[in-house]
Structure formats: C-alpha cells, structure tokens
C-alpha cells in the first residue's frame, strides 16, 4: 500500500519536474534519481542479503569509465555502451563474490574495501583512463541527433534510474529476494531448505554491481566529466550512508536518502565547511535511534516495531 503510493509520488515528481523546476533543481532531481539507483544496488545487497560492500563506487567507476572508453576506442554508442559496461561490472562483482563469499559475510566488507582501493589506484595509474586528470564524457547521439541539452540528459538519466529502481524493487519481492532474506535471518534454516548460500550471495553482489554500473553510467552523462576523485573509498562510504539514512529495506529508502544527501547541503549552504561532518554525525545518530531508516516513519507499524525491537532486542532483524 505505502509502496504503491510512494511509487506514484516519485513518478509524479519525476514527470512534473521538467515543467515546474528550474534548470538547477532539475539537474539535482536527476542526480537524486541516479544516486538512488546506484544505492538501490546496495539496498539489495545489505538490506536484503545482509552483506556489506565498500565497493559500490568501484562498480560505478567500471560502468562509467567502461561506457566512455567503449565509445572512445571502439565507437560503441554510449546508450549501448552503458548497459555493456554495467554487465562487465556485474561479471566483476560476480567474480569477486565467487572468490570470497564462501566465507563469512564480513570478509566481503574487507575484500570490497581493498577492491575499491585497487580500482582507484588503477584508474589513477593507467593512461587509457586519463590518469589523475580524468576523462571528459562525450555526449550521446541518437539517430544523428546530439542529446546534450539538460532536458535530454534529465530524461535519459531519470528513465534509466526508474528502470533500475523498479527492477530492484521487483527483485526484492521476488522468490530470489525472499530466499536471500531467509538466508540473512537464519542461514542454517535456509540452507537446510535447499538455498545455495554461496551462489545466492554471489548473485546478490553481481546484481548490486550491475545496478551501480548502469546508474553510474548515466550519472556520468549528467556530470559530463570523470574525475578519479569521485571513485574512492570515501564516495563508497557515502553510498552506504545514503542507504542507512533512508532505510535499507526498500528502494524508497534509497530515494529518500539520496534526496537528503543531495538537497540538505544546498539548504545549509552557510555551513558547507562542516557539511560532511554534520551529515556523518547525523548518520551515526540515525543508526542508533532509527536503524530502519527514515522510511520507517512512513510505514504504519514501522516506528512502533522498530522501537519495540530496540527495546527488547531482536537478533534476526
């Protein structure tokens, strides 16, 4: 019920924004959309499968650098290159999961942390990626028309984000999502019922990598420039923070979190020196007082059950 209402609201905002919002606001709404789509991959991985990845920014890098390089060197149009690069990100995520997910979950956090570092250093040290200088993102051409107006970029980015968010939402509520949830709550019970822990978790990491790569490719179109400093452990931590603030149980949490992280710095522009500190302090407080995220305010019983859980302790949340 709340979920459907939220979808209507998001789609209404996305559809009306081009008519009502100014250029700056329109750009930011587009950034919220792609950021939310990137984070929704993490929502699936952490909120559903119970795993931590500090490498979402690395998959975003693979998606965006991949698409741009495919265009520059092989002449593959960006609109085809982005899905291809997202698929590459997915394969890399799958491999990473395949190699280290036979172990307990928190090893994944360590491996992804290291992987993030490796990807960052690789980007800086390779010539093909433009090194520390970065790369300009070429504009999209479709049937000979160059789509580089803010409006065209907005439409492409929001459409791609909507597809990503909706797919993740469907996956969360699919059989596959339910099996992952069962695995998170009691892996022994789930395995005894026939769930293959390693392959399910590996697929969850691959799924989150595809979401990050795909949405990241479209975010590259919005940003128009790839700077290696966008792809660090710090940005990966930002994605986790966005997920936590919004709530890691549904894609709506990702959207709310992204909106907060994009718009709040604008409102508090006088404090920008302290912005990152305020945000992360807020995130820490949120984890303690509202571990299910802001989205739990809206779900009818959410607040109550969250409060009860924190009072009585719930081992298998």
């Amino acid at each position: 019920m709340w979920g459907n209402l939220a979808w209507v609201l998001w789609l209404a905002i996305a559809a009306l924004a081009p008519f009502l919002a100014g250029q700056y606001l329109l750009y930011n709404i587009g950034i919220v959309a792609t950021t939310a789509a990137i984070v929704s991959g993490l929502t699936f991985l952490s909120g559903v499968a119970g795993l931590i990845s500090i490498a979402q920014s690395a998959f975003v890098a693979i998606g965006s650098y991949g698409a741009v390089l495919l265009q520059m060197h092989l002449g593959i149009p960006l609109l085809i290159g982005i899905p291809v690069a997202a698929a590459i990100a997915g394969v890399v995520g799958w491999l990473l999961g395949f190699l280290c997910l036979r172990l307990d979950g928190h090893y994944l956090a360590l491996v992804t942390l290291a992987f993030m570092g490796i990807v960052h250093y690789t980007i800086i040290n390779l010539d093909i990626t433009g090194g520390a200088v970065g790369l300009a993102v070429p504009s999209v051409t479709l049937f000979g028309v160059t789509l580089d107006s803010p409006m065209a970029i907005y439409v492409m980015a929001v459409t791609a984000s909507a597809i990503t968010l909706w797919s993740i939402d469907r996956l969360i509520h699919s059989r596959y999502g339910r099996m992952l949830r069962a695995l998170r709550q009691s892996d022994i019970a789930a395995v005894s019922l026939g769930a293959d822990r390693r392959s399910l978790r590996t697929m969850a990491l691959a799924t989150s990598a595809v979401a990050g790569g795909f949405a990241g490719g479209f975010q590259a179109l919005q940003l128009t420039y790839l700077d290696p400093q966008q792809f660090t452990i710090v940005t990966a931590v930002f994605y986790i923070a966005i997920m936590v603030v919004g709530g890691m149980r549904s894609v709506h949490g990702a959207i709310i979190g992204a909106a907060i992280f994009v718009f709040v710095p604008g409102f508090l522009s006088g404090l920008e020196h302290y912005m990152a500190f305020i945000l992360f302090f807020f995130v820490t407080v949120m984890i303690v007082v509202m571990p299910d995220g802001l989205v739990s305010i809206f779900s009818a019983g959410g607040r109550l059950s969250g409060w009860m859980a924190s009072r009585h302790g719930r081992k298998n949340a």
Binding site: L51, I52, R184, A241, V244, I287, P291, R314, N316
Partner: peptide, 13 residues
C-alpha cells in the same frame, strides 16, 4: 542485539 551488519556500518559512519 542488532545483527552484526548494523554495528559494522556504525563503525564506518
């Protein structure tokens, strides 16, 4: 009493 994922994310934050 939360699943260990939450305190780990808390240390990151």
């Amino acid at each position: 009493n939360r699943p260990v994922l939450i305190p780990i994310v808390a240390t990151i934050a």
